[in-house]
């Protein structure tokens, strides 16, 4: 019978804390980056231009239909050779995860915009707004409200997907856990602690989203 002993992990508390800080910072970066990529590609999909639409669609499908692990490795090893720009593991991770998440955010944003009836846009145009102004002032604010639950879900996935960056030796929570596991010879305790850390960070967020859905679900 295996004897669990979590007390050894206390030695590694600063290592774990560093990992958590890295994971949370990365999440903030790839949520914001993903939203930016998603917004731009959604606008491309909704634009009148066939070329823009084709570019946006290709981009979205490329990142939706390849595994994020492959994208991470590709961005780190292949992208610098193609572009000639050296990328740090963190930069490569942020690019890959932003593009991957962005391809999913894009569909959420596009769907949200389409769901705001064309009448809202027309009313803006009839008042003398340019299409850009009507989008920014009238359609997007209403679409965003409608999108919040789906965007939150995708952001939760972004958070969990940051766990893959350890393959590029980015010192996130998983990577620090690996170090602690090798050092302590206590992998079971270490990875249990890592899993609990993810859970403890995410649970309040998901409960908040659930609560918000319950409150606003009927009113929409």
């Amino acid at each position: 019978m295996y004897e669990w002993d979590f007390s050894v992990l206390w030695t590694y508390r600063w290592l774990f804390l560093d990992g958590i800080i890295m994971t949370v910072s990365l999440t903030v970066a790839v949520v914001l980056g993903g939203l930016a990529v998603g917004l731009i590609t959604a606008m491309g999909m909704l634009s009148g231009s066939r070329i823009l639409k084709a570019v946006a669609l290709s981009f979205i499908e490329l990142f939706r239909c390849t595994p994020i692990l492959v994208q991470l490795i590709w961005c780190y090893y292949a992208l610098p050779i193609l572009t000639g720009i050296e990328l740090s593991p963190i930069a490569a991770s942020i690019i890959a995860l932003s593009c991957y998440g962005g391809s999913f955010y894009s569909e959420i944003i596009r769907g949200g915009i389409v769901s705001i009836e064309t009448g809202q846009r027309e009313a803006g145009l009839a008042l003398g707004m340019t299409p850009t102004l009507a989008m920014r002032r009238i359609v997007l604010p209403q679409a965003l409200r409608r999108m919040v639950p789906a965007l939150m879900n995708q952001s939760i996935l972004q958070f969990k997907n940051t766990s893959l960056v350890s393959v590029l030796a980015v010192p996130d929570l998983v990577y620090q856990g690996q170090i602690a596991a090798h050092d302590s010879f206590r992998p079971l305790e270490t990875y249990t602690a890592v899993a609990v850390a993810y859970l403890v960070i995410l649970l309040p967020v998901t409960l908040f989203v659930r609560h918000r859905d319950a409150r606003f679900g009927g009113a929409r």
Partner: peptide, 23 residues
Amino acid sequence: ARALAAFRARTGMVFQNFNLFGH
């Protein structure tokens, strides 16, 4: 788009479904 917008600003339109801004 800008020329169209300037032109539309001179006319007011009222729609069947009101189209008030919900937010």
